Simulated scan of single mutants.
Amino acid sequence: MSVKTFFTRHWFMYTMCLVIILAYIAPGVGSKGGLIYPEITVKYGAVSTIFFFSGVSLQTSDIHAAMSQTSLHVFIQGTTFLVYPVFMKILCILLTTIGDFNKSLLKG
């Protein structure tokens, strides 16, 4: 594998490392109220941009392979939105009736 191919394939990680080094050299640029106003740009732009470029760099075959795993997605969504909430509700009810726990803490 040539150096150009290697850097082309892993451009995102090298760009992230470069940005970290630049932040170390000139931290004032990214501080609150600094040149790029990170309280606005990071909150609204940087996160979206990172996810966008990560998604664009994926191979179509990888996306198709991941989307075709329906049973895995149903399992993850089911446990996230059904099993865990029901389990936590039962646990909170048990802790409320058995122990002397703060109800506000259990609500959170």
Rank of each mutant, 00 (worst) to 15 (best):
F75P: 00
I90M: 08
Y84A: 14
L91Y: 05
F101N: 11
V74E: 09
G55Q: 01
L91M: 11
S57R: 10
D100M: 03
D100L: 05
T96S: 05
F51P: 01
S54M: 15
G45I: 03
G99W: 03
Y44N: 09
Q59L: 15
V56K: 14
S48I: 09
L72D: 03
Y44P: 02
D62F: 01
G45A: 04
Q59T: 11
K43Q: 07
I98L: 10
T80R: 08
T79M: 07
C92R: 13
F75Q: 07
V74D: 06
H64C: 10
F53W: 11
M88G: 08
F52C: 08
L91S: 09
M88A: 13
L91T: 06
S54T: 12
S71M: 06
P85E: 01
Q59Y: 13
Y44L: 10
Y84L: 15
F51S: 07
I76W: 02
Q59R: 15
T60R: 15
H64E: 15
S48K: 09
H73R: 05
V47L: 10
G45L: 07
F75K: 08
M67H: 02
L58D: 05
T97C: 02
A66D: 11
G99H: 03
V83R: 01
F75D: 06
V83Y: 07
L72F: 11
S54N: 13
F87L: 14
M67P: 00
K89M: 15
A65C: 04
K89P: 03
L91E: 07
L82V: 08
I50N: 03
V86I: 13
T70S: 11
T80M: 08
G55S: 02
Q59E: 15
I98A: 05
K43G: 05
F87A: 12
S48N: 12
G45P: 00
T70N: 11
T97W: 02
V47G: 05
I90K: 03
I76A: 05
L94Y: 12
Q77M: 14
T49W: 10
T60Q: 14
M67G: 09
Q69R: 12
S61E: 14
A66P: 04
V47C: 02
I50M: 10
A65L: 08
L82K: 00
L94M: 09
I63G: 02
Q77S: 14
S68A: 12
F52Y: 12
F87K: 07
I98D: 06
G78W: 00
Y44M: 06
I93L: 15
F51H: 06
I50S: 05
A66L: 13
I63C: 06
V86Q: 03
P85D: 00
S71F: 05
L82A: 10
V74N: 07
L94E: 05
V56C: 09
V47M: 08
V74W: 05
S61R: 11
C92E: 11
A65H: 09
V56D: 09
H64P: 03
Q77N: 13
H73W: 06
G78C: 01
L82N: 04
Q69E: 12
K43T: 08
L82M: 10
F75Y: 12
L58I: 03
L94W: 11
I76L: 10
S57M: 11
F101C: 13
F81Y: 07
F75G: 04
P85L: 00
